[in-house]
């Protein structure tokens, strides 16, 4: 017996897309899907991050575990992470970080010889795999900006040294936030704002202005030519209800009506640089599909219930 499908066909429209940042509209679906995508992007899309550190020499001012923690937080380029293995289920190496399917080795060796303080940065990490390297921030301001020099791990003075070996592994944000590819992922309901023109005509210009000014964000304005109140930026509305309260206080409830469209969402996705923002959404869809696949009923569960069902049917007849 095959059931009827209740499938939806969501629409998506990209507003802006850059490597590390993306804005898009998602329509014809509900908040549960929007929220599932947000949650998966933050906590379940895999990336690579340093997870094991062997310190050979450390005469810096920071202790070993402090440095190991800082290394873990450095975002690494992770386009390959989706196809790699988690080291806990890697049978090629038993998860000890010696194999190419689940881990990448890094080496760092720095010693300060001069009088000037030496910054040890993510650029001093040498990877055994050119596809997994500390993220690089493209520089637009000039070649001597601090960003160009990578992420500072520790500073060394004359005579201090840091030498270590680090293993990066595949992981997810649910395990530890260092594996989260998302800097921020947010969505908002698209607001739908209606102005009752007839009621608005009964207001004086000063009253219109005070209504416009009651919103803490610039949602409304007065058209200089027609002197009508117009919506200039519906999405600036933060669902604060201030204009609605103002309208009420003016004795004009219903002059403005604001509703959240239940099936339209505006997403903002910012990546740490580990993967592109657009790839982050694609990977999130794949991960969510894998999760759904994992929660399908197994055949033996279905069979066990079929027998139970027949038994139940016999009992009901009897």
């Amino acid at each position: 017996m095959e059931g009827v499908s209740y499938q939806r066909f969501p629409k998506i429209k990209i507003r802006e897309v850059k490597d590390e940042c993306m804005k898009f509209e998602l329509r014809n679906t509900d908040a549960s899907i929007a929220n599932a995508l947000r949650r998966v992007m933050i906590a379940e899309v895999p990336t690579m991050a340093i997870d094991l550190v062997e310190i050979e020499v450390n005469s810096s001012v920071l202790n070993d575990e402090f440095i190991a923690h800082r290394l873990g937080l450095i975002p690494l380029t992770s386009e390959r992470a989706m196809s790699m293995r988690f080291s806990r289920d890697c049978d090629a190496c038993d998860g000890d970080g010696q194999c190419e399917y689940c881990s990448v080795e890094f080496r760092l060796s720095a010693k300060c010889l001069g009088d000037q303080t030496l910054d040890v940065t993510s650029k001093d990490l040498y990877s055994s795999d050119h596809s997994v390297v500390p993220v690089d921030f493209p520089d637009s301001t000039g070649y001597d900006s601090p960003e160009q020099r990578g992420i500072v791990i520790v500073k060394l003075r004359r005579g201090q040294e840091l030498r270590l070996r680090a293993i990066a592994r595949k992981g997810i944000g649910k395990d530890h936030a260092k594996w989260s590819p998302a800097a921020t992922v947010t969505f908002m309901y698209e607001p739908e704002i209606h102005i009752n023109e007839d009621m608005m005509e009964t207001l004086s210009l000063e009253e219109k202005q005070s209504l416009v000014d009651s919103s803490p964000t610039k949602v409304f304005d007065i058209d200089p030519n027609t002197q009508k109140v117009v919506v200039v930026d519906a999405e600036a509305y933060t669902y604060d209800d201030e204009v609605l309260k103002k309208a009420e206080a003016m004795g004009k409830p219903g002059i403005i009506d604001i509703r959240a469209k239940e099936d339209s969402f505006i997403f903002t996705v910012e990546s740490t640089g580990a993967i592109k923002a657009s790839q982050l959404l694609l990977n999130a869809i794949d991960v969510l599909k894998q999760k759904l696949d994992a929660v399908r009923l197994s055949d033996d569960t279905v069979d066990a219930d079929d027998q139970f069902g027949e038994l139940g049917a016999h009992m009901r007849v009897g």
Partner: peptide, 12 residues
């Protein structure tokens, strides 16, 4: 589960 799976296929 099937409908959600197909919805995600469509979304992708």
């Amino acid at each position: 589960v099937n409908d959600l799976d197909k919805e995600l296929d469509h979304l992708k």
